[in-house]
Amino acid sequence: MVRYILNKFIFMFLSLFLLITATFALMNAVPGSPLQSEKATTEQIQQNMKEYYGLDKPVIVQYGVYLKKLAHFDLGISMKKRFQSVNKAITRSFGYSFRLGIVSIITSVVAGCVLGIIAALYHRKFLDNLAMILAVLGLAVPSVVLAPLLQYLFSVKVRWFPVTGLTHPIDYVLPTIALSSVSIAFIARLIRSSMIESLNAEYIKTAKSKGLAGHVIVWKHALRNSILPVVTYLGYLIANVITGSVIIEQIFGIPGMGQFFVSCVIDRDYPMIMGTTIFYAVLLVASRFLADIIYVLVDPRMRASAGKAVK
């Protein structure tokens, strides 16, 4: 078990390092420069700015300098927003994305499980079909359509919810729906298929024949087994959702960090590109790492094998 975790941990670091190197190389290979502007300045001004940001040095030196700073958890200073440290920009905006993300994950898991269980229990009946129609809709309608539609209907037409902001609980409603629709649908389908399988398994039949109550069977035995794929999916979902979505943040005017992923590339804001990528990658590998551990805890079979079988 310890070795299993240690292995995963080392792998995690290695992949982070590779990712940092690849991002740094790619970023410098893309045409365009962080100092570009529509109106030409003089060569001297360009040179001054290069010196200011250390871009006058060879790329390999810049890379070394960057790694050194990174070792001290310093992500540098944004080139677009002068004097704004990347650390500060990320921590400031991450709070918003994180809060919305957590609400969305809880909504997704709860709603997805409920829909999935209903569908499985009423397999091939009306409720199953209804739940699956909802799931297909959730997967098929992208947030770029859903978010403006929700905003138009519920904020502009009937004015139940504010157009923008994320301060009051009511502000969360529309962004959460828009952000969760895909994952609700995905989880519902995962749960449904694995529930159907579980409900027909031998051990459920045993439980039934032992006279256990229906809800106990569903919640304690069948769901526990069926939730494993959801745990795996959550590993990706968490990192994805809590770092924010560009579309949803822009439409609902949420000052989260999703927007940075796009704007920093357009601006060629090197420190910001590196900072957001690393931050996202750390969250992603960390949550996958957690998912791996949770997997072992939830599934007794994994616990037995984890010690030996994993390379």
Partner: peptide, 15 residues
């Protein structure tokens, strides 16, 4: 959706 939101809001408040 209304019921889902109810659940999520309760969660958000405690968070």
């Amino acid at each position: 959706t209304v019921s889902l939101v109810g659940i999520s809001l309760a969660a958000c408040n405690s968070k």
